[in-house]
Design a protein around this nucleic acid. Structure first.
Length: 891
RNA sequence: GGGCGGGUAGCUCAGUUGGGAGAGCGGCGGCCUUACAAGCCGUAGGUCACAGGUUCGAGCCCUGUUCCGCCUACCA
């Protein structure tokens, strides 16, 4: 029965135990039924299957877990849908490296065997991230875990592809796209990261053919000139007016190319003459289309020059640049070379410089889809929180470009399209057809490409619920309640889910999108392995425990865009966990009742009990409100303050005299233990979503509880809360008692009087109710302020030698005959008076300002007057005391 | 180029309709007071980036300046 807890909380001892307990008891699983009960659903942002838990996940998971655990305690039927995504390019890269270590190249292996190898790899290593999520305490419905390459999800992908194709929203086209020569695949615009880099602007002379000199063009990429098919100038540019329509020589190739006029050209940049390479520059591609120019692809998919590059064929693109520049210099065609800063696109998976490349790819026409997705947010069907992110969402959606969804890799969802070997017709279908519908030819060549991983992620909120089948789960939980994610994938993922959800489900995918910050290191840099500034959450968990990490993340969750994390903070919150632990340890020594049937609403309750219950009621409301509005930091801070600075610092100290006192009636002791039990219980419940492990552990030691704390009801508007009374009177009275104790402590501290020395104190007030109150709680004050005695009297007679303080109208005198240092006390009073003077002067200035008195609201003016009066009286008392002290000192 | 966010105590940051500047950590002083030294008590410290404006009143609203960070873009 006597549950003696260890002196310090040891997370390692309990975390694994309770996680297993929760799983074994099925506490994470949602009920699949079309019942009346409120449903609450969150789909996890699926981590990359190759991923290792980082701080970003930790924050993301913690916040979702807080919501889910909280909603369960509020009585909702909660589905937290977990899973991973197959991360096409990243996974393929990982597995390729894995194979390379064994000296195997994927092309040797062949496509089928390679995919088999990826699945095998996934089986071995793919659940690492899931195990790590569990260490964070994530209460996901693991039995329903999904993977974007699951059969069900693949079916959804094919269905979506086919339907969009039939609706004309997917098409295949020759277009200039971003190409990663290392990953050997196309990338979507979003998957390119631009980085400002120093380079050069090369001025190259293209000689004319009619005896005249010809233009000088400016370029940052001279190697692409081998693929030039025109030179463009602005139609209004007088300098080149007579060149338009003529041809010029393309150096190093011997080809002749036309000079065309296009208003895209910026006359003020460079030389005003632009070389046009339709196959290797998006703008040039557009110009090429407008002017019907041929495209010459001189850079191959592997980043080396093609046969079309003539003598440069086979050279790496960067080596070719060097060679071209050398050759131009030799021919005296390089007129100028100036330093130039410009943005260069890099592959977001491997950092290789992206090559704009002409290629035949599949695209989603996003325009019509985006229109509706914008409406959904504008009309409030989906709320984006904080609201400021809606601006970014709108802007991106409104400027959206077609989405290149085909990838030239092997790992991913095959594009459900086939080309007839005879007539060349493209067939798009859920399953491979037996024959070409046009010519009945039997040889159908499957499209070699796979789909962008984000294409399948975009379906996540409904594909995981069973779509395209009409499942109970789908009916129950779509639209989902909330999506919690970092702003870095607002476009990659959220925007695309919005488009797909609306289009296929005819409803938004989620009611709320909560966008949280990014976790950075303490100097504000993004954590990355290459910088070496990562704080590994698993290490943190080892050292400080999961709860400390979670509470830290929650407490910092709403701090703008970034969370700068350092171990110091986490350590600080570990102290909080330990504080809670010790408060529980103390409480459990006194809680013997096994039932909650204690008289909580009872005027006979002692003041500290009435006070803490009143405060508890307020905090219950505050925390619930904060979580309901995604103000996780407010919730965490409210709890931190309440538990540490009210419950521990005051309440537990205040009830010690009751619990330990010999003269206290047993029924008061019992009632106090009851209030203590109730308060601790509710603290545990409120804290549980934030720090699930330590609260579960304490819960099981707390008499009168049963089962898991996960199944405890959050005290809200139910009768649980009704039995706690909001008691402003008690709060008011406690404020006074605390104020007086603080004043005495202040004197003790400033006078350097050790706690071991008991003090004799006199409190004087003219208000009889206050005297009665102080008399009544004399014991409390004596114990907590460590007094030898407390005398309460009406104002008038002054004790002979004392240090004094004023709280409200109470004059507090600490008697220190023979110990008091008059000089020190005089200095203390003077300091206090100076401070008061400054404040009073400010108030006087306000009140002497007639504009203020006339125009400010009545209650504001009244408040200032009250304050002025109160401080004036306080100052008077202190000044009077100062005179007396000076007189004593002079004796 | 465009847009967004930020500049508040030594550090990291709160500050939700404009009305007496806050927390945590750190610092300093005193304490092993029967839950906790991962603790307790006390205390110092701020022209709220700068300059104007609106207002009786501005950390908060407006304008400009400056510094930092991020996102975005087709000036080669």
């Amino acid at each position: 029965m006597e549950p003696l807890l260890e002196k310090a909380y040891e997370p390692k001892d309990v975390e694994e135990k309770w996680y297993r307990f929760w799983e074994d008891n099925n506490l994470f699983s949602a009920a699949e039924t079309l019942q009346e009960k409120a449903n609450y659903a969150i789909v996890i942002p699926p981590p990359n299957v190759t991923g290792v838990l980082h701080m970003g996940h930790s924050l993301n998971i913690t916040l979702q877990d807080i919501l889910c655990r909280y909603r369960r305690m509020r009585g909702d039927n909660v589905l937290w849908m977990p899973g991973t995504d197959h991360a096409g390019i990243a996974t393929q890269n990982v597995v390729e490296r894995h194979l390379a270590a064994q000296g195997i190249d994927r092309h040797q292996l062949g496509r089928e065997k390679f995919i088999k190898a990826v699945w095998q790899w996934r089986g071995e290593y793919g659940s690492a991230i899931i195990r790590q999520l569990k260490r964070l305490g994530a209460s996901c419905d693991w039995a329903r875990e999904r993977f974007t390459m699951d059969e069900g999800l693949s079916k959804a992908v094919r269905k979506v592809f086919v339907q969009l194709y039939e609706e004309g929203l997917i098409h295949k086209d020759n277009y200039i796209i971003n190409w990663c020569p290392r990953c050997m695949t196309a990338l979507a615009d979003l998957e390119v990261e631009h980085e400002e880099m120093p380079g050069h602007l090369y001025h190259i002379h293209y000689p004319g053919t009619d005896g005249k000199d010809g233009p000088v063009v400016a370029t940052t990429r001279p190697e692409t000139m081998l693929g030039d098919t025109a030179v463009a100038v602005h139609p209004d540019d007088a300098r080149y007016a007579d060149l338009i329509g003529k041809t010029v020589e393309l150096p190093l190739t011997g080809r002749m190319i036309p000079v065309i006029a296009d208003s895209y050209v910026d006359m003020t940049f460079g030389t005003g003459a632009l070389k046009v390479t339709p196959a290797h520059d998006p703008n040039d591609f557009e110009i090429g289309r407008r002017h019907d120019l041929p495209s010459v692809k001189v850079i191959g998919d592997d980043g080396h020059m093609t046969e079309s590059a003539g003598t440069y064929a086979g050279l790496d693109r960067f080596a070719c640049r060097k060679a071209v520049v050398e050759d131009l210099t030799a021919k005296d065609l390089l007129k100028k070379m100036e330093p130039h800063q410009h943005g260069i696109g890099h592959c977001y998976r491997c950092r290789t410089a992206v090559e704009p490349n002409l290629s035949k790819q599949w695209f989603v026409r996003t325009g019509p889809l985006a229109l509706k997705a914008v409406e959904d947010v504008a009309q409030g069907r989906t709320r984006i929180i904080p609201e400021k992110w809606a601006t970014d969402y709108y802007k991106w959606m409104e400027n959206i470009r077609d989405w290149c969804i085909s990838r030239q890799i092997w790992w991913g969802h095959p594009i459900p399209a086939w080309t007839c070997g005879a007539c060349g017709r493209i067939i798009v279908a859920m399953e491979k057809p037996d024959a070409c519908p046009d010519c009945r030819h039997l040889e159908l060549i499957p499209d070699p490409d796979v789909l962008d991983t984000w294409f399948s992620s975009a379906l996540w909120p409904f594909s995981t619920l069973g779509w395209p089948d009409e499942t109970v789960l789908l009916k129950q939980f779509y639209p989902t309640s909330a999506l919690v994610t970092g702003f870095d994938i607002l476009f990659f993922w959220v925007a695309r889910m919005m488009m797909m959800g609306r289009h296929f489900m005819d409803d938004v995918p989620f009611k709320d999108v909560y966008v949280h910050a990014l976790v950075r290191d303490e100097s504000g840099k993004k954590m990355s392995k290459s910088t070496g500034n990562v704080i590994d959450p698993l290490n943190i968990i080892e050292t400080y425990g999961t709860d400390a990490l979670r509470f830290t993340l929650a407490a910092f969750a709403a701090q703008g865009r970034d969370i700068k994390l350092s171990e110091k903070r986490i350590e600080g919150y570990r102290h909080f966990i330990n504080k809670l632990w010790n408060a529980a340890r103390f409480s459990l020594m006194h809680i013997r009742q096994t039932g909650p049937d204690l008289p909580l609403v009872d005027d006979g309750l002692l003041l500290p009990n009435r006070w803490i219950l009143s405060r508890l009621k307020t905090v219950l409301r505050e925390v619930a409100d904060a979580i309901d509005t995604y103000r996780f930091n407010d919730a965490a801070n409210s709890l931190y303050h309440f538990v540490w600075h009210e419950f521990c610092d005051w309440y537990l100290e205040l009830i010690k005299p009751v619990l330990y006192g010999d003269a206290v009636m047993q029924d008061q002791k019992d009632a106090t233990a009851g209030v203590l039990a109730r308060t601790l219980r509710d603290i545990l419940i409120m804290l549980h979503p934030f720090v699930p492990f330590v609260t579960e552990e304490i819960w099981h030691h707390l008499p009168g509880t049963s089962g898991s704390i996960m199944t405890a009801a959050y005290p809200d508007s139910d009768k649980n809360l009704m039995e706690i009374r909001h008691d402003p009177g008690a709060e008011q009275e406690m404020l006074m008692i605390m104020g007086i104790i603080n004043a005495i402590r202040n004197i003790r501290g400033e006078m350097n009087i050790p706690p071991s020395q008991a003090l004799a104190v006199v409190v004087q007030t003219d208000i009889e109710d206050k005297r009665r109150l102080l008399d009544q709680h004399q014991g409390l004050i004596i114990t907590i302020a460590r007094l030898s005695g407390l005398q309460v009297e009406s104002a008038g007679q002054k004790p002979r030698a004392s240090a004094t303080a004023v709280f409200e109208d109470n004059l507090i005198s600490v008697r220190l005959e023979g110990v008091i240092d008059f000089v020190m006390e005089a200095a203390r009073l003077e300091k206090e008076i100076v401070k008061l003077d400054i404040e009073i002067d400010k108030l006087n200035a306000k009140l002497h300002n007639s504009a203020f008195v006339e125009k400010a609201p009545e209650n504001v003016v009244e408040k200032v007057r009250d304050q002025q009066r109160a401080w004036g009286e306080k100052k008077e008392k202190l000044s009077h005391q100062l005179e007396r002290i000076n007189a004593f000192g002079a004796e």
